[in-house]
Design a protein around this nucleic acid. Structure first.
Lengths: 114, 114
DNA sequence: CCGATACTGAACCATATAGTTCAGTATAGG
DNA sequence: CCTATACTGAACTATATGGTTCAGTATCGG
């Protein structure tokens, strides 16, 4: 599954403290690489790498404006990740309900045996 | 935030192909370590490590039954991750609406100037 | 045009991660 | 009790990751 591979990449991108904090910051509004690097106590180059990863995970969208690169949240990645989680939880609940039914049936059968 | 650190760990646990596949498998029902290791083409020890990571992320719960360790899905981690994503998306939509309002106001002001 | 600013890419380094093998330990079954 | 099974832990290896510095390139402001 192509979609599957993508979601895994998105989760991996989310699973880092610097990137998660950066996303929270970008949630407040767009920013340049320098503006993101400074509060993270990190070099420009370092932050650039994180942004690249977030971009490939569709969590951030960027564009060059003059000599600064403008970064902002992209919903896509968030939507994909949320979708996968919701699907998983939905399937699980269905599974659990089916299990419960089976148990109920067994109980009824046991009663009838007596 | 303690909760925050936890969620990041959960995303990191999800962000691996073997672990994601293992979760999908466990979604079908519980399994032993060997049963999980085999289809992943991996040693017992290797799978054990993944299970440990999934366990610490509250995505899997395990218990020892005789000489086999039984693994099954734990909803907690999934719930936490989904909660964080939903919160983030909710905040973002609110932010976008506020932005839209500001733009609308500017437009009105411009019209009044003419 | 000049200097400062903002990024970019390459090269490098240290540590973390994903996997292995090997040598146990504990339980299941005869 | 004996053997096979199922796991566990320690030690090790190779590669990926997160960070750096340094040497560009491109744009901004005067």
């Amino acid at each position: 599954m192509v979609q599957y591979r993508k979601t895994e990449e998105t989760f991996a991108a989310l699973g880092d403290p610097v990137r998660m904090a950066t996303l929270e910051r970008l949630g407040e509004g767009g920013a340049s690489i320098s503006e993101l690097a400074e509060p993270a106590g990190m070099s420009l180059t370092g932050m650039k790498k994180h942004i690249r990863i977030l971009e490939e995970a569709n969590l951030v969208r960027t564009e060059k404006r003059g000599r600064t690169r403008w970064c902002e949240i992209s919903s896509e990645g968030f939507d994909e990740a949320a979708f996968w989680l919701d699907e998983f939880r939905r399937r699980r609940h269905k599974q659990l309900n089916r299990l419960e039914e089976v148990i109920e049936r067994k109980k009824r059968e046991k009663r009838n045996e007596k």
